[in-house]
């Protein structure tokens, strides 16, 4: 055959060869078809470790109860026992090393998440004792009068 056919063909073969060589170095060995087959399981298997080793921040109330046993046991006597410590005190992460002190959310908005009354009968929201935030002491922090660890109205400060 004439060289004007062969020359571009050599160029194409060369480019394909370069791509294949580069691919060997770029694509990790764990990349390929795995358990779920080609359609759903074509991926880099080692990436699963990235997600398995992701940092846990919320440690749950069980992590708090040994050191803060007095606060833990007192809140357990109240209806607020169902609320995890970290929902108001923030994620523990590696407390007490990091962070040494947790930033407590004492805002009015935090209480209103549940205690702003909404008349939604198909939700248990309507069963929670609530207030109208526009009428019930607007602008004042709830914790000035109410103690979230002793929420009953009888123990108002």
């Amino acid at each position: 055959m004439k060289s004007h056919i062969w020359r571009p063909l050599y160029a194409v073969i060369g480019i394909v060869a370069i791509i294949l060589i580069v691919r060997v170095f770029i694509v990790p060995e764990s990349f390929g078809v795995h358990e779920k087959g080609y359609m759903y399981g074509w991926y880099n298997k080692s990436d699963e470790n990235y997600w398995k080793e992701f940092k846990v921040k919320y440690r749950s109330s069980g992590y708090c109860k040994d050191c803060h046993s007095d606060n833990y046991s007192s809140i357990m006597q109240t209806p607020h026992a169902i609320i995890q410590c970290e929902n108001c005190h923030g994620p523990a992460i590696d407390h007490p090393e990091n962070p040494a002190k947790l930033d407590i959310n004492r805002s009015r908005e935090q209480c209103l998440r549940c205690h702003s009354y909404l008349p939604y009968m198909q939700s248990d929201r309507s069963k929670i004792r609530g207030i109208d935030p526009d009428k019930h002491n607007p602008g004042i922090e709830c914790v000035n009068c109410h103690n979230p660890h002793k929420p009953s109205l009888e123990s108002l400060k």
């Binding site: 359609m39 759903y40 991926y43 990436d47 990235y50």
Partner: peptide, 26 residues
Amino acid sequence: PPCVQVCPVGATYQTDDGVVLVDRKW
């Protein structure tokens, strides 16, 4: 998962236990 099916580079996938993950490097 239709999201996994359309990924052209294999960066999102279904693990053995059914969870769909995204490969941030890929």
